[in-house]
Amino acid sequence: MQNVDRGITGSSLAGSAILLEIGAEYGVIEFLQNSEVVDAAAASRSCGIKESVISAYLDSLSKAGIIEVLSPTAPATYKVGSNFEELINEVGYLSWALRACAPLINNAKEFSEHNEEAQAKYPRSGGLVARTSKWMGEKSFYPQPENAIVAMAPRKIVDLGSGSGGFLIRMLRKIPGSTGVGIDLSASATEQAVNAASDAGMSDRLQFVTAPIQVLVEDASLIKDADIIHAGFVMHDLLPAEEETLDALLRACCTHAIKGTLIIVDAIPVAQSNWEKPFAAAFNHLHNHFMSRRLLSEEEWTEKLFRAGFSNVRIEVLDHPGGRMLMASK
C-alpha cells in the first residue's frame, strides 16, 4: 500500500498547509495566485523577502506538487498547479482551525475554568482570522451570495461587516452602475477598504464607514434605499448578549431597504449531513464555549425574520459545512 496514490490525506494536507502558511507569512501567496509565470526575483520584489529564500521556497513548492516547473534553467520559472485554488480552500479550514483558533485551543483548560478572563487574555489574531476565512470562503461561502446578488442587479448594496472591502468591490465590478456602502467595526479594515476602492478606481461608487452594525438601529441612514443588505458571518456576534438589538436591526433592514431584501450568511449549530457534521460541531463548540456566542438554527432564523416583517424567507445550504444563506424579502 505504500506506493498507492491515496489522494488528499492528513499528511499531504499537513505538508501543503506548512508550505502555504510559510508563503502567507512571506506575503507571496497572492502574487502566486495573480501571476501566470513566476520566478524568484519577481516574487522576491513583490514581498520583500530575500531572493535566495524565495528561490528555495519555490523549489519546495514545486517538489510538493503545489506549483509546476515551466523552465528548470536558471532563473527557474513556475506556474501554480491546476488545483492551487482548491488546495488553498482545503488548507484554509486547517489553518483557521489550528492557527487562527490556536489561542483558544492551546488554553482550553483555562477557558473551562475562567472563561471571561481567558477571552480577554487570549484573543485571536484578527488578521489570521480574516485571511484564513478568505481562504475558506472564496470557494465555500462567497460564490452563492455573490451569484444571488448579481442575478438581482441591485443599484445599491450595503455590506454589514465589510472588512477590507473585497466583497463589495467584486460586486460592483460585476454590476455596472451599482453603488455600495460598507460598515465595519475595525478602523484598520475600513482604511484598507478605502485604499482598495481607490486602487480599483471605485472611490466614487463606494463608501466605507467605521462603526458597529448596531448603530443602524438608531440611525438607518446608511441602509436607506438599499436594494440589497448583505451580512456575512457577522450577525451571530450579537448573540446572545444583544439579541434584542439583533431583532431591532432586522426590523430596520426590513423597513428601510427599498426592496427589503436581506441576505444573511451564517452558520447553524447542528448539521445533519455527514460531510458537514464534524466542522459544524467544532465551529459551534468554539463559538459557544470559547467566544460566548450562540448560533441560531434554520428554524430560529426563519422565525426572527418573519417577526421582523419579512414575508418570504428562503434558505440554501452552502459548500461551507454548517453554512447557510438566508434570503429574506418583503
Results as ranks from 00 to 15, higher is better:
Thr9Asp: 10
Ala14Val: 06
Ser16Thr: 12
Ile22Gly: 00
Ile22Tyr: 08
Tyr26Gly: 05
Gly27Leu: 05
Gly27Trp: 10
Val28Lys: 12
Ile29Ala: 04
Leu32His: 10
Gln33Lys: 15
Val38Gly: 04
Ala40Val: 07
Ala43Asp: 08
Ser44Leu: 05
Gly48Pro: 05
Tyr57Cys: 07
Ser60Ala: 15
Leu61Asp: 03
Ser62His: 08
Ser62Cys: 13
Val69Trp: 04
Pro72Arg: 10
Pro75Cys: 03
Lys79Glu: 12
Val80Pro: 02
Val80Tyr: 03
Phe84Asn: 04
Asn89Leu: 05
Gly92Leu: 07
Ala97Glu: 10
Ala100Glu: 08
Ala100Tyr: 02
Ala102Glu: 13
Pro103Trp: 03
Ile105Ser: 00
Asn107Trp: 04
Ala108Cys: 01
Lys109Cys: 01
Glu110His: 08
Ser112Gln: 06
His114Gln: 13
Glu116Asn: 11
Ala120Asn: 14
Lys121Glu: 08
Pro123Ile: 02
Gly127Pro: 07
Ser133Gln: 13
Pro143Asn: 06
Pro145Asp: 13
Lys156Cys: 08
Ile157Asp: 11
Gly165Leu: 10
Leu168Thr: 07
Ile169Glu: 04
Leu172Tyr: 09
Pro176Thr: 01
Pro176Asn: 09
Gly177Leu: 05
Gly177Pro: 09
Gly180Val: 01
Gly182Tyr: 05
Gly182Val: 04
Ile183Lys: 06
Ala189Ile: 05
Val194Glu: 12
Asp199Gly: 05
Gly201Gln: 06
Arg205Trp: 02
Arg205Gly: 03
Ala211Asn: 11
Pro212Thr: 11
Ile213Glu: 03
Val215Phe: 10
Ala220Phe: 06
Leu222Val: 03
Lys224Leu: 09
Ala226Lys: 04
Phe233Lys: 10
His236Gly: 03
Leu239Asn: 14
Leu239Gly: 09
Glu244Cys: 08
Glu244Asp: 14
Leu249Gly: 01
Leu250Asp: 05
Arg251Asn: 08
Cys254Gln: 14
Thr255Gln: 14
Thr261Ala: 09
Leu262Ser: 06
Val265Trp: 00
Ala271Pro: 00
Gln272Glu: 14
Glu276Leu: 01
Ala280Glu: 11
Phe283Glu: 14
His287Val: 00
Met291Thr: 03
Ser297Cys: 06
Ser297Lys: 05
Leu305Tyr: 04
Ala308Asp: 04
Asn312Cys: 08
Asn312Arg: 15
Val313Ala: 07
Ile315Cys: 15
Glu316His: 13
Val317Cys: 12
His320Glu: 10
Gly323His: 05
Leu326Gln: 07
Ala328Tyr: 04
Lys330Arg: 15
